[in-house]
């Protein structure tokens, strides 16, 4: 991790956001296992640093797109956790009025396009958002978050190629958690790094430690600055690990025990705590207090979400078109 060039306020904000994501996800997992929450979920415990590091390098009016594993990105971009929890419970007050659910979380007012649950499907959307920014000569940037698996989709190639030839202000952020569902990335990718693929588009490709929020932030900042200068896209590969199942009841038996063990030691929040406390930047008490505040906040959110109103069944017929005929 880098030297003390960041204010304590900034570092604690980074910590707070990562913990908010972790606790949100852990609470949601519990609600699912209790059978209280409907649907299915894909969670991002262990991958908090990538969402937070990248989004902290963005402005409010920048735009992100995400995947079937979108909760962390949404929280990091500033989507209200109340509106997210309401959405997960299928409530009318949810960020998508109960029409999206976990895999389509988003809020355009906060710069997040509804998440796309078809692997690779969000990459052209972010590229298109970037095209709009460039055509209107706005200094905004779009980010496509994707998993390692998405980089084998045709949509990846088509969109990254167009992002490159048109020099669009877009970041292609690959969260490489080593597995596409249960398939190890080494079985389906020949190059050492996924970022090596950037070379064929003649754009920068960078691989960084995706469990180090500061390293992620710095790499994202550089790519964002480049994009804002009109110099085009960057392929940013963030090495991370999912310390939960692929979806709600997956015990992840395909992850070797020793690998899992190492990943737990390397997970971003524990590491960041050690960094902050070990370098005397703050104390464990301060961090514990943040943890407790977030716990309380999430508990309130869950209580309120459960009390929120369900949509009427026939609301299913609304919101397809702007213009009703």
């Amino acid at each position: 991790m880098s030297d003390n060039k960041y204010s304590l306020e900034f570092l604690l904000e980074m910590y707070r956001k990562m913990v908010l994501i972790r606790q949100f996800e852990d609470r949601v997992k519990f609600l699912f296992l209790e059978g209280i929450m409907p649907g299915t979920i894909h969670q991002c415990q262990g991958q908090e640093a990538s969402a937070v590091g990248v989004c902290m390098a963005l402005n409010e009016d920048d735009v992100i797109t995400s995947t079937h594993r979108p909760h962390g990105h949404a929280i990091a971009k500033g989507v209200s956790i109340q509106s997210m929890m309401d959405e997960l419970f299928g409530k009318i007050t949810g960020c998508c009025k109960g029409k999206g659910g976990s895999m389509h979380i988003g809020d355009l007012d906060k710069g997040m396009i509804p998440a796309v649950a078809i692997v690779g499907g969000n990459i052209p959307l972010a590229t298109g958002a970037a095209l709009a920014f460039k055509m209107r000569k706005e200094k905004r940037v779009a980010v496509s978050f994707m998993g390692d698996g998405a980089t084998n989709e045709g949509a990846f190639h088509e969109a990254v190629n167009m992002g490159a030839i048109w020099n669009l202000p877009v970041l292609y952020v690959v969260e490489n958690n080593l597995y596409g569902a249960s398939t190890p990335v080494g079985m389906v990718v020949r190059t050492k790094n996924i970022s090596d693929r950037a070379a064929i588009y003649d754009i920068p490709g960078v691989t960084v430690d995706g469990n180090d929020p500061i390293a992620v932030y710095e790499a994202a900042q550089e790519a964002v600055a480049r994009a804002r200068r009109g110099e085009g896209p960057t392929l940013l590969e963030l090495m991370t690990y999912r310390i939960t199942g692929h979806s709600r009841r997956d015990p992840a038996l395909y992850q070797p025990k020793d690998e899992k063990q190492r990943a737990k030691e390397n997970e971003p929040i524990g590491r960041f705590r050690k960094y902050l406390v070990g370098n005397d930047l703050t104390s464990a008490d301060v961090l514990d207090k943040i943890d407790a505040e977030i716990e309380e906040e999430i508990e309130k959110v869950v209580v309120q979400a459960q009390k929120a109103a369900d949509p009427k069944p026939e609301d299913a017929l609304e919101d397809m078109f702007v213009e009703s005929i």
């Binding site: 797109t65 396009i113 499907g121 990459i123 052209p124 959307l125 972010a126 590229t127 298109g128 958002a129 970037a130 095209l131 709009a132 055509m135 779009a142 045709g154 949509a155 190639h157 088509e158 969109a159 190629n161 167009m162």
Partner: peptide
């Protein structure tokens, strides 16, 4: 597929 998605994003 790519340019339809790009058009959608724009």
């Amino acid at each position: 597929n790519g340019f339809m998605g790009i058009a959608c994003g724009a």
